[in-house]
Design a protein around this nucleic acid. Structure first.
Lengths: 223, 223
DNA sequence: CCAAAACGAGACTTCAGTGTCTCAGATTGT
DNA sequence: ACAATCTGAGACACTGAAGTCTCGTTTTGG
């Protein structure tokens, strides 16, 4: 690990080493896209998201094949593989931000809002997986976008805190990370078919708010 | 993702695609090692563990340099990079199993045993990181070893359950995974210096057993 | 002490994957 | 309809890393 700054989301964002040999690159992308080009570009991005979610080390050729497109076409839109990877990552983040933005979290009581959030993440699990497993180079754009996403979580938690629902000495950052840690596990369970989405939401809610212990365990494990 | 069988530890064990171009390999390792060879082999393995923990995509040359050893020597002991990777992974697992075995978990009350377990993992965080971030190909050996490690966790949890400390409708597998999810977050916090080991153990214990909610939250979030 | 074994250094081969280029054909926009 | 743009297909050059090999030197074990 050799990240410089120490942000709050280390757990979620993986190392950013350009994961394959990459030559310096060349020209930037054009200015105005013809309709079909734009269509294609979007399609490539979407396919790449799925492919990278399944295998972060997938080659450009694999993406091209999956998208039913020539490899050269990909390079036309994304000069280097790293740039494609970065674009995919940002696209996934945008996907999630959009989904959360339209989920109406503000209108929900905090506990329900967290439930809703998990539902969104489960629905967008491919995007979520990309965020977690595909590397990204942290620049200002990434930083800002990510920060905003985290802000949405933090806000919900702070509202819960205002309702006296959160143990006072647990920081918002911890609650957010603990939530995402548990949510991530649940996500895997759903992906494995060991749990359906309803069950996942239920289990995460209970685990997060009340832990896995019985009342008697709560007494015994307190310091 | 293209794993066939569906085990309980998908969350922890990452995709196993040989993460770099690898040619077919060649000869197996010799039979009896001279003393210096054995020493060297162990040293390479240990160094590789550290290097791979920091960067799962590190090259053989990087490992060689870090170990102060010729690249050829590494290839003598581990014909292909993949075999080195596999050996490192298994070594890390063995490391952890050993540490847990000598931690005297059986003699501790279940909640304390889980605390102790986290302490061990924090102490062996390099090995743990390797397990999580470095790919491995699942063969029978890996499967058996991993299964045993999980068994150790499961056993502690089952003892807790026998003491009526675990909510009856939460499965042992879920408790184990939720624990490891939260523990993983705590591990990152410690690595970032946002938490010391004592605090991490404390926080994980409370979060796991009682969640992040206040008593009133427990009432309100129940179904 | 000496033969066998292991090593480092460096030269070499091979190869997968990137990125470039060209060109003939399809699509678009006006 | 026609010029501009985009595309697929394929050939090509380049490179980093893997794996092999040799040879002179060091270490081991009996």
């Amino acid at each position: 690990m050799e990240r410089s700054e120490s942000k709050e989301y280390h757990f979620v964002v993986p190392a950013a080493r350009s994961d394959r040999t990459t030559r310096p690159a060349a020209s930037p992308t054009p200015r105005v896209l013809r309709a079909d080009a734009a269509r294609n570009r979007a399609h490539i991005l979407e396919t790449a998201m799925v492919v990278f979610a399944a295998d972060p080390l997938a080659t450009v050729d694999e993406v091209a094949t999956a998208a039913g497109v020539g490899r050269a076409t990909i390079h036309r839109h994304f000069p280097t593989r790293d740039q494609l990877r970065q674009a995919v990552w940002l696209g996934a983040l945008e996907h999630l931000r959009g989904a959360l933005a339209t989920a109406g979290l503000d209108a929900l009581e905090p506990p329900l809002a967290l439930d809703r959030m998990l539902e969104v993440i489960l629905a967008e699990s491919v995007a979520y997986r990309v965020l977690i497993r595909v590397g990204v180079e942290i620049d200002d754009e990434v930083d800002a976008a990510f920060e905003e996403l985290l802000g949405q979580v933090g806000e919900v938690i702070d509202r819960a805190r205002a309702d006296d629902l959160i143990e006072a000495d647990m920081t918002t950052a911890w609650v957010a990370d603990a939530w995402s840690g548990v949510a991530l596990v649940a996500l895997e369970w759903v992906a494995d078919g060991r749990l359906d989405e309803r069950g996942a939401v239920e289990l995460v809610r209970r685990t997060l708010w009340a832990g896995v212990g019985t009342p008697s365990a709560r007494r015994r494990t307190r310091r």
